[in-house]
Design a protein around this nucleic acid. Structure first.
Lengths: 127, 127
DNA sequence: CTGTATCCTATGAGATACTG
DNA sequence: CAGTATCTCATAGGATACAG
């Protein structure tokens, strides 16, 4: 039998969901997949992320022990980021989502098209 | 070599991330793991989800072809929801996140405590 | 180069009341 | 029972300007 209430029983699961549940976290982790990168490198890899969001996401990841920040005191400052071992444990999960998207996202798009074809008078906001 | 820009090259990946990137979607899918459920049953399983959010999430999932909605025209109305085959393909992914949270979430909590212990004068907003 | 600080808007999400 | 509609607030996130 399963627990009747996933909201209480699976608390850590929900906390884990919070880590992934924002626009940039997964992307930043993914950008660090290959190893240490500098701030600017990460930024150029994700391109349309703003400074604010990159800094904020990096801070959260550092706070959560998923990323480590290393400052080299030179001028101009050089800051490098890398996944911690803990952060790396998320990689298989992210790769799995990536595989899922390659394999199935077209189906989601099709479903959406079909849905909007039927409901076009009610909601057509889907570029 | 990898693509230089995950924002453009991995578009479907980002779209897939949008599916998981909200507070309730994963939980609702998870609540349907065992099979068909009625609206009220799902609601009681997730407990602290509001009617609005449950309805909205269910609609999105239906639109994306991940969940199917079946209405039995009786009074009072009976509405059943179930994962589609496509929706079920997300299950392994969600289970993996659940396993990750069981295995590693304590480490995240510890990291946070340590972080706040060092930065307590700057930010202490962490229950 | 690596950030901070501020302003602003859109969206997420809860509360409440109402309906077939 | 299974929603819809509306109000409201908090947060996410983008733009821009500034700083060490």
């Amino acid at each position: 039998m399963r627990e009747p209430d996933i909201s209480i029983a699976e608390c850590s699961y929900r906390r884990a969901l919070e880590i992934v549940s924002n626009k940039w976290t997964a992307l930043v982790i993914y950008a660090l997949e290959d190893g240490t990168s500098r701030y600017g490198t990460i930024k150029s890899r994700i391109a349309d992320i703003s400074q604010k969001m990159l800094t904020q996401t990096l801070k959260q990841l550092e706070r959560d022990g998923l990323v480590v920040r290393k400052v080299t005191p030179v001028v101009p400052p050089a800051v490098e980021y890398a996944l911690t071992p803990l952060g790396m444990t998320l990689l298989p999960f992210l790769r799995m989502l990536k595989e899922w998207s390659s394999a199935h996202y077209a189906s989601v798009s099709e479903a959406r098209e079909a849905y909007y074809a039927e409901h076009q008078d009610q909601d057509a906001s889907h570029g």
